Amino acid sequence: MFFLLIIFYLISGNIIAYIYQKLGMKYSNTYGIMMIISILIIFTVLYRNKLQFSGWYKGDVKDKLSNTLTKWLISIALLLLLLAPILSFLFH
């Protein structure tokens, strides 16, 4: 699981950083932390709803996240991703 998380973070983090750079956003640790948290949330949802059923998970409990929780987590992650450039433009 850790290996999958690293690969997912490297790919999605580079894509998001590229988009932020094209938007002209100045990088700061605060916005980087927001990006990391959102990537972790998205990975958690992806893992719990898809990857654990494809042989990556060996435990006894194989329950998907509820639809409501999935929607909330994805919404929070997207809000964090959108909030970072907005705050960057407002405060720099």
Rank of each mutant, 00 (worst) to 15 (best):
T68H: 01
K50F: 14
G55P: 07
I41G: 00
T68A: 02
I39N: 02
S54K: 05
Y18E: 09
Q21V: 00
K22Q: 15
K62Q: 12
S38L: 00
L51H: 07
N67D: 10
K71R: 10
M25C: 14
W72N: 12
I16H: 04
L51M: 14
T70C: 09
K71F: 11
T44F: 15
T70F: 03
F53I: 06
S66K: 09
Y31V: 11
Y27T: 05
L23N: 04
F43D: 01
Q21D: 15
L65N: 04
I41V: 08
D60K: 11
Y27L: 05
N49L: 02
K26I: 09
I42R: 03
S66M: 04
Y57P: 00
L40P: 00
D60A: 10
G59A: 06
D63F: 03
V61L: 12
L51K: 08
M35V: 13
Q21A: 14
G59K: 12
K26R: 14
Y20E: 05
G24A: 07
L51Q: 00
L69T: 11
I39D: 02
M34P: 01
S38H: 05
G55F: 07
G59E: 15
G59C: 00
G55Q: 06
Q21C: 03
T70K: 13
S28Y: 03
Y20H: 10
I41F: 14
G59L: 09
L40W: 09
G32L: 10
D60S: 11
L23S: 11
S28V: 11
S66Y: 07
I41T: 01
K62H: 13
W72K: 11
S38M: 04
I15Q: 01
